[in-house]
Computed example of a mutant assay.
Amino acid sequence: MYRKFTAHNIFNGYQVLLPKSVLITTLEGAVVDIIDKADAGDEIEFFEGLITPGFINAHCHTELSYLKGVITPNTGLVQFVQQVMKNRGLLNEVKMQAMLLAEKEMYNSGTVAVGDICNTADSIQLKQKSSLYWHNFIEVSGFTDANAIVRLEGAKNIYQEFTSQLPQPVSLSPHAPYSVSKILFSQLNNETAHQLITIHNQECSAENDLYQQKEGEFLSLYKNWGIDISGFQPTGKTSFQSWLPFFDNNQSILCVHNTFTSQADIDFYKKQAEFKAKLFFCLCVNANKYIEQKLPPIEMLRKNNCDIIIGTDSYASNWQLNILEEIKTIQQDSAGTIPLAEILQWATSNGARALQLDNRLGSFEKNKKPGIVFINHLDELQLTSKSAAKRIL
């Protein structure tokens, strides 16, 4: 038994197909073929809009879902981080209920896989029963060399909890350049050879200030937290150019946010072939607006043929966990100059490739089971304010 789907447009993960194409799947959603409507026979389900493979949310903090509506918007990253730390102490029952609601929103709005940041084991119970696919990034931080090994061992304990209770992939990953010491970066390089990892990259200008001149807002954050950074020496380079050389063991790295990434940074990456690191640049545009009121240099990333993917970040820094709302913001910011098909590719096949799931998700190719999502209220392949995404299968 099969199901047959058609719409005004079908996006297959790479391009919008010719009109009158029909997607054929098994009842469970495995792709059988895409054929012309004239050859498809009867019982074709028609959707007035666009059909796309399921979305890949490449960056989320599901365990922070209990912070929805708690963190004040537009404060800048340093104040945001301090608010998150201040509001961590809630009951596990409250956290679990918030995570369940977050997963439900992602599922219903078309997400099929999530790159999820984990600082605790709080989300294991959710993921044991989840219909979504998860790659769990166990975040490691520690800005002074003195506590680097202790912090790494703590993260390894959480890593073991995940690997012992879940069949999903798990990776150790550095939190951000402003929270990881040189020794910790070196240790993580050794621990993550040939693995997929992630890092928050250049989310605010203060991150570059820290590495270039040992100045900026992070100095007050360290003081407030009682962190002695007298041993930290600025590199005179941007944070990106300072942390990237640590990873030379064939890692694939999801660089998240990139709000203050420059052409010089991209040129630096292109010249560093010996690092053998494959980078994907993850956009979380609504979170950037929520925290810093600034968007990343999307056009610059496009011109450099960077591999772009999309995430939502968390309820702590976003109004929703809906990938289509991220796509809307990108289209609006570009005044419609970026084709919808290109942005959808970032959210589907690019994201699947980044999370190393392209053998099963991201595109309507034979035997894949990528999920099927319907987007309505389009205007000539442009999203409108009324456009919404809904999972079909």
Score class of each variant (00 low, 15 high):
H8W: 01
I10K: 02
F11E: 02
G13R: 06
L17E: 03
V22L: 09
V22H: 04
V22K: 00
E28M: 07
G29T: 04
V31T: 06
D33I: 04
A38E: 13
F47Y: 13
F47K: 09
L50D: 01
I56P: 01
G69Y: 15
M85Q: 15
N87R: 06
R88F: 10
R88K: 14
K95H: 12
M96D: 04
Q97V: 01
N108E: 14
N108V: 11
G110Y: 08
T111F: 11
A121V: 05
D122K: 00
K127S: 07
Y133V: 03
F143C: 01
N157Y: 04
Y159K: 01
V170I: 09
E191F: 12
A193D: 15
Q195A: 06
L196W: 01
I197A: 00
Q202G: 06
E203L: 07
Q212E: 13
D228W: 10
P234N: 06
D248H: 12
N258H: 00
T259Y: 05
F260H: 15
C282H: 14
L283A: 08
N305C: 12
Q331F: 04
G336C: 10
P339A: 08
L340I: 04
T348F: 11
A354R: 00
Q356T: 03
L361N: 04
F364Y: 08
K368S: 10
N376V: 05
L383V: 05
A389T: 03
